[in-house]
Design a binder for these strands. Structure first.
Lengths: 245, 245
DNA sequence: TTGTAAGCGTTATCAC
DNA sequence: GTGATAACGCTTACAA
C-alpha cells in the first residue's frame, strides 16, 4: 500500500541499491542519477520505512526516557529539553513513568530495547543497574548520579548556597528548609550546602522532610503551616501574658 | 548478538515456526512442545524483536501523542493518563511537542507513520487535517473537537457552570474571568457557560483574555493585579474623601 | 558507477 | 501438529 524503495527505483529507472545509496549518501552515485532519484522521491512523496531500516541496522531513531512521573512538575521541562534536542536531530522520545518501581523501570527498559532504542535517559532513584549493565545500552542519568554511569545534573552545592544567600539577603532570620529525601544525593547536597551557609550566618534553622512528589510537598507544606500556627498561638499567649490582661 | 527466535527453536528442538506459534497462540501446537518452547524462552531469556515483528505485521506497539507543549501544566496529566493505559496494554508512547506549528505537527505525524505507529492522539489547535485524512491512521482528538474526528473532551458547559456556581456560592459578587482564546472551542464554551450563570445571578463580570500557555496566564494575572491595584487606589481615595481628611 | 542478492528477525502460507 | 520457506522494506557486500 505504502510507497517503498522499489517504487522509487522503478520510477527513477535504477535499482533499489542505487536509491538507497543516494538516500544515505553512501558509496558512489552519479550526479545525474542522484538527481533522477531525488526527483522520483519528490514525485512519489516517498518516506523510508524506518522499521525496515531499523531491522537491518539494529539502530533506530528512538531514545527512551524513564522518569518517576511526568506529572511531577519538575519533569516536563526536562522532557521538553530532551525532546527539543532530539527533534532537531531527527530522533524521537519514548517515555516511561516508573513510579519509583524498579520492576516497572525494568520492564520499560526491556520494551525499549526490543525496539532498538539507541540510548536511554534515566531520571529515577531506583535504577535497575544490573539490567542496564547487562544490556550494554548507552545510558545517561539525568539529575541523578551513580558510579559507572555518565550523568548530567545541576551543581547542587552552588544551588543550595545561592538559595541560602538569597533568603538571608532578603532579611530572614529564621528559615525552614523543606528537604528532599536524604537518600537522594542531589537534594541532600543542596540541603547540606544551604544548611552550611545558613548556619554560618547564625540563622535559626527548621527542617521539614518531604518526598520529591507533588503530594509529598503538599503534606510538608501542611505540616509547616500547622507548626507555624502553633508557634503563632504560642506567641499570642506570650503577648497576652506580657500585656497582663 | 541478541537472542533470536532461531536460538529458541534450536534450544527447544523445534522449528522457528513452532516457536512463533507458541509465542502468539496461533494455530495448533502440542501442549508438550509448547512447554518445551516456553522453557527454552525462559532459559535463554528471549525477548522477541519488536522491530522484526513490526516489519512483517505493519503494526507496532507505539502510539504517537502530539500536544502543544508538555511544559504547559495541563498536558502532563493528560500524557500520564494515556501512558498508564498504554503501559497496561503493552503499548508505548512517543511524544511530540508541536508548539502550535502545523508544520512541526506534520513532521511528527510523518515520522510516527514511518515507524508504524498504530494510532495518533492529538491535542493541538492547529491540526494538520489533510495529512491525517490522507494517512488514514486512526486518530483521536484529546480535549479538542473537529468534524470527522472522534474526540474525547470534558463537558465544557457543565464545567463552566460548576465553576460559576461555586464561586457564586462562596459569596463573590464581582468576578473576573480569565478567558482562553475564543477561537478554541473548549475554552470558549466553558467561558460562555460560566458567563451565562454569572449573568443570571447579576454578578459583576470582568473579562481578561489570555492564551493557553503558562506565560499567557502569567501575563493575564499581571494585568489583572494591575487593574485591581488601580481599583484599590481608587477605593482608597474614595474612603479618604469620605473621611474628609 | 551501478545492479544482484543476501540477510536483518519475524509471521503466515503452505505442504507434509 | 509441525517444518520449510517466502515475504516484510531496507542496507551492504560483491560482481559487473
Amino acid at each position: 500500500m505504502s510507497i517503498t524503495i522499489k517504487d522509487v527505483a522503478k520510477e527513477a529507472g535504477v535499482s533499489v541499491a542505487t536509491v538507497s545509496r543516494a538516500l544515505n549518501n553512501n558509496g558512489y552515485v552519479h550526479e545525474d542519477t542522484r538527481k533522477a532519484v531525488m526527483d522520483a522521491i519528490q514525485l512519489l512523496n516517498y518516506k523510508p520505512n524506518e522499521v525496515a531500516r531499523s531491522l537491518f541496522t539494529k539502530k533506530s531513531k528512538f531514545i527512551g526516557l524513564v522518569l518517576p512521573d511526568i506529572t511531577n512538575p519538575f519533569f516536563p521541562s526536562l522532557a521538553r529539553g530532551v525532546e527539543d534536542f532530539l527533534y532537531a536531530e531527527g530522533y524521537h522520545l519514548i517515555i516511561g513513568n516508573s513510579d519509583k518501581q524498579q520492576d516497572k523501570e525494568s520492564e520499560y527498559i526491556d520494551a525499549f530495547l526490543q525496539n532498538n532504542v539507541i540510548g536511554l535517559i534515566i531520571s529515577t532513584d531506583e535504577i535497575a543497574y544490573n539490567k542496564l549493565e547487562k544490556a550494554k545500552i548507552p545510558t545517561v542519568l539525568l539529575d541523578r548520579v551513580a558510579e559507572n554511569f555518565p550523568a548530567v545534573y545541576a551543581d547542587q552545592d552552588e544551588g543550595g548556597t545561592l538559595a541560602a544567600e538569597r533568603i538571608i539577603a532578603s532579611g530572614c532570620r529564621c528559615v525552614t528548609i523543606v528537604r528532599g529525601p536524604i537518600s537522594v544525593q542531589t537534594t541532600y547536597k543542596r540541603y547540606k550546602a544551604a544548611y552550611h551557609v545558613l548556619k554560618q550566618h547564625q540563622i535559626e534553622i527548621n527542617i521539614i522532610d518531604s518526598s520529591l512528589s507533588f503530594q509529598g510537598g503538599q503534606e510538608a507544606a501542611i505540616r509547616l503551616l500547622r507548626s507555624i500556627r502553633i508557634r503563632m498561638a504560642f506567641l499570642l499567649v506570650m503577648i497576652l501574658l506580657q500585656l497582663r490582661l
